[in-house]
Design a protein around this nucleic acid. Structure first.
Length: 422
RNA sequence: GUGAGUGUAGCUCAGAUGGUAGAGCACAGGAUUGUGGCUCCUGUGGCCGAGGGUUCGAUCCCCUUCACUCACCCCA
C-alpha cells in the first residue's frame, strides 16, 4: 500500500470512536443545559473571511492556512477555526434580527498547516461555542463555566486548570501596549531573538515567553490588570465574582495571551496535565468588535474552542457495551438459511444481531465471545430436527433449549435482565 | 520554517564486528468431528522505509531521500 493519509491528517479508527461519541454526546447534553443550539457552517470559506476575522498578522493567517484557488478563480480556505464562519452565518442569515441573543455551538474539523506533534494535527476537531448579544459579565462567567463543565465531565476536576485574564478593550489596551513596549525596549538586550521581534508586533506575547532570560527581564513589567480602564476593570471583577458563584475553580493569569487578534476583555484557557507541551484543551474569550469587523451589527460576543483530540488523549479507554444476540449456525446451507430467517426476526424487534456465515462452529463461538455478545442463539441439526433453538448465556456459560416460537421472547427477556444488571 | 530522535511481521519490540531475520501479542487451524474465555501444540505472515554507493556478498557501513515522533514557533 503506497497511498497513505496526508501528513497530520489522522484516521479515527473503530477502536477509539467510542471516545469521540462520548465527548460529542457530553457536549450536546451540557450545552443544551445552557440553552445552546447547533449551527453547522461549511468547512470551506472565502479566504477574505479569515483575513478580516482572525487578523492578517496572526500566525494562523500568515502561515497556517490551507488556501487555494478554486476553479472559478476565487481564493478559498479550509477553516482554521470556527468562530469566523459561525459569525458569517449569523450575519448572512440575520439571525440576530430574529433573536437578539444567539447561543450556538458547532462541532467539526479544522485545518491548519503546521508541523504535527503531540496534540497538534493538520486536521483536528473542535467543539465550538459562541454566545452573542449579551455584554454583561455574567454571560462571560456562564460561558467559562460551560467550558469548564464540559472538560470536567470528561476528565474530572483534578487534572484541569482554568486560567483567566482580561485583555482590556479598544480604549485601554493601546495605552497598555505602549507602556509595555516602552518597558521592553529599555531591556531589549536581555530578550531572546524572537521576543525582540515580538516586542513591536505583539508585546503581550513576550510576557508569555518560556526563555529563562526573558522571564527575568520581564519581571516587574506593567500588568494589564493595573492598566484596565474603569469599565473593563468592573467587568473583569464581575466575571470573577460570577465564576465564584458558579463554583468554577480558576486562577488569574495576568500573562495569559491569545493568538487571535479579535479578543477583548475576558480571555481564558483550560489546560490539563499529561498532554506534553500542547496542554491547552480549551481556550477562548470575549470579542466585542468582531461582528462589526465582519460587517454585522455592533454586537458583542464571547466564545471558546475545545480541542477534541487533546481531551480524547487523556480519556480512559471506553469499551462499547454490546447488547444483543450472536446467532451460531452449523455451516450447512439449509441450516444457515433457517438461521437467516431467525436473525431477521430478532432484528425486526430491535435486537442487535450478528452471525458469521461459512465459519466453523468453533470460530463462530469465538467471534461471539470476542465481540462481547452476552447471548448466543445456537441452531444445529438437533434444533433443526426438533424445531427448537438453544439459547446460551455467555457470561454464565449456561444454556437451554426452547421451542422455536418461544425463542424470541426468551432472548428479549434475557437481554433486558442483563441490561438491568449493569 | 528550525532542531533532535526513530524507521525490522497487523501491533510492541529484539537482533549480528557485513553471510538475506526472531520473540510476545494478534490472526488461522488443531487438542475437544455441535460450544467461547484458560492451557498446550501447529501454522500464515517480512522487497529489515525507499534509492544509490562500497563489497564476492548490505537489513547492518557510507551518501541521498521519504515517512513518523517529540520539541521550538504558534495554537485547541
Amino acid at each position: 500500500m503506497d497511498i497513505k493519509a496526508i501528513r497530520g491528517m489522522n484516521d479515527i479508527l473503530p477502536d477509539t470512536v467510542a471516545k469521540w461519541h462520548f465527548v460529542e454526546d457530553t457536549a450536546r447534553r451540557i450545552f443544551s443545559l445552557y440553552g445552546f443550539t447547533e449551527l453547522r457552517p461549511p468547512v470551506l470559506e472565502r479566504t477574505e473571511l479569515f483575513l478580516r476575522g482572525i487578523g492578517d498578522e496572526t500566525d494562523v493567517v500568515e502561515k497556517q492556512m490551507y488556501t487555494f484557488v478554486d476553479k472559478s478563480g476565487d481564493s478559498v480556505t479550509l477553516r482554521p477555526e470556527a468562530t469566523a464562519s459561525v459569525l458569517r452565518s449569523v450575519i448572512e442569515h440575520s439571525l440576530l434580527n430574529k433573536d437578539p441573543i444567539q447561543k450556538l455551538y458547532s462541532i467539526g474539523p479544522m485545518f491548519r498547516y503546521e508541523r504535527p506533534q503531540k496534540g497538534r494535527y493538520r486536521q483536528f476537531h473542535q467543539i465550538n461555542a459562541e454566545r452573542l448579544g449579551e455584554d454583561g459579565p455574567l454571560a462571560d462567567a456562564e460561558t467559562l463555566s460551560m467550558a469548564y463543565d464540559l472538560a470536567s465531565a470528561i476528565l474530572g476536576h483534578d487534572v484541569l486548570l482554568m486560567e483567566v485574564n482580561s485583555l482590556g478593550c479598544q480604549k485601554c489596551r493601546p495605552g497598555f501596549k505602549d507602556a509595555l513596549t516602552g518597558f521592553l525596549a529599555d531591556r531589549q538586550d536581555r530578550l531572546c531573538e524572537d521576543c525582540r521581534r515580538r516586542m513591536y508586533a505583539n508585546p503581550l506575547r513576550v510576557l508569555d515567553c518560556k526563555v529563562e532570560s526573558c522571564k527575568e527581564a520581564v519581571e516587574g513589567a506593567p500588568l494589564i490588570e493595573e492598566n484596565l480602564c474603569p469599565d473593563c476593570r468592573d467587568h473583569f471583577g464581575a466575571v470573577l465574582t460570577g465564576l465564584s458563584i458558579l463554583n468554577v475553580r480558576y486562577e488569574k493569569n495576568p500573562r495569559l495571551v491569545r493568538g487571535l487578534d479579535y479578543y477583548t476583555r475576558t480571555t481564558f484557557e483550560i489546560t490539563a496535565r499529561g498532554l506534553g507541551s500542547q496542554n491547552a484543551i480549551a481556550g477562548g474569550g470575549r470579542y466585542d468588535n468582531l461582528l462589526s469587523i465582519l460587517g454585522g451589527p455592533d454586537v458583542g460576543g464571547i466564545g471558546f474552542a475545545f480541542g477534541m483530540e487533546r481531551i480524547i488523549m487523556l480519556m480512559n479507554e471506553r469499551a462499547e457495551q454490546v447488547s444483543g444476540c450472536f446467532v451460531v449456525a452449523q455451516p450447512k446451507p439449509e441450516i444457515e438459511q433457517e438461521a437467516l430467517g431467525f436473525i431477521s426476526e430478532l432484528r425486526s424487534s430491535g435486537i442487535r444481531v450478528e452471525a458469521a456465515f461459512g465459519k466453523s462452529f468453533k470460530a463462530q463461538m469465538r467471534r461471539a465471545d470476542k465481540a462481547g455478545y452476552p447471548v448466543c442463539a445456537i441452531l444445529g441439526e438437533n434444533e433443526m430436527a426438533s424445531a427448537t433453538l438453544t439459547i446460551k448465556d455467555m457470561e454464565h456459560a449456561e444454556q437451554r433449549t426452547v421451542e422455536r416460537g418461544a425463542a424470541l421472547d426468551d432472548i428479549k427477556s434475557m437481554l433486558i435482565r442483563k441490561g438491568e444488571e449493569k
